[in-house]
Simulated assay, not measured.
Amino acid sequence: MLEEPLTGGNANAGVVRVGDTVRRPAGPWTPAVHALLAHLDAVGYRAAPRPLGIDEQGREVLTFAPGATVWPERFPLLDPADRLARVARLIRAFHDAVAGFTPPEDARWNAMIPADGAEIIAHHDLAPWNLVVEEAADTWTFIDWDLAAPGTRLWDLAWAALGFVPLSGNPAFRRADRDAAARLRLFADAYGLDDEEERRALVPLLPQRALAMYDFLKSSHAAGSQPWARLWEEGHGDAWLGHADYAAERAELWTQALLD
């Protein structure tokens, strides 16, 4: 069958569509990721692709998610409150589904930015650039599970809030402070983050998670690791540092919004 290269994203070299499947270069982490995706499918979580094994070229095979990623052109799709809440509920459903997952004994993970904790196997990149929406069929799918690794619910949720609310230091995407705070509250409510201690704990993780991305890009540039070194040269490091500063400067506002 014909292979159609899939564009978009930062690490998509060699990713193609073949019929209703996606073929991607496999890595040492692929068996563990496929075990995770098989578990999610078995327990009825439908916002993730299904694993279909390895093809004759040694590539992983996944079901193709119809639609297009939200970021960047379709990001206004998430402006309505009910759409933002739906994202949060999908994340909560994933976290609940993965809680019952037992990784293979020989599992290897591609932990790009390790979390401080191993409560669950987290996605680590739940973001608008990894959410595919097909409006006609009303399907929403999180893709790019290669970075799945041990982590925590709050670590995953902090990253998702930065991207989906969004909590952005970029004036082109920045919302008025009160609007951003209200959307953060909505996001946490829809996720079901009901414990006051967890709500307080989420706030410092917002700048910490953005700063972790800055540190990762900086070290990748020093090591010459692509495509991350290129992103550093394009200014993405400075952008994440700006997001971290923005989130840290408004910590009191975020806390008030989450607790009032």
Rank of each mutant, 00 (worst) to 15 (best):
P204E: 00
L126I: 12
N130G: 04
A181Q: 06
R83L: 10
R108N: 10
L77W: 15
G151A: 07
R250T: 14
P76Q: 06
R83I: 04
A180T: 03
T69R: 08
D116T: 09
E234T: 06
D156C: 08
F101L: 05
F75T: 05
P25K: 08
N10H: 15
V133Q: 00
R178N: 15
L154Y: 04
E119L: 02
E3Y: 06
V18R: 14
E196M: 09
G192Y: 00
W109Y: 13
R86S: 01
W159N: 13
G235F: 06
G8V: 10
M1V: 15
D245I: 15
N12Q: 14
G44D: 09
Q226L: 07
R46N: 06
A149P: 02
W159K: 10
A42W: 04
S225L: 14
E249D: 14
P103D: 01
L62T: 11
A182Y: 03
M1P: 15
A26E: 05
A68Q: 11
G19L: 10
A118C: 08
G44K: 12
F187D: 00
A93W: 08
F164R: 12
A176I: 05
T102N: 05
V165R: 00
H39F: 08
G192L: 05
P51V: 04
A251Y: 06
H243R: 15
R230G: 13
L241W: 14
A88K: 01
D215A: 13
F216K: 03
E3Q: 12
L253K: 10
E196C: 09
F64P: 08
L84C: 05
D195Y: 01
W140T: 06
T30R: 00
A248P: 04
N10Q: 11
H39V: 02
R174E: 00
P128K: 01
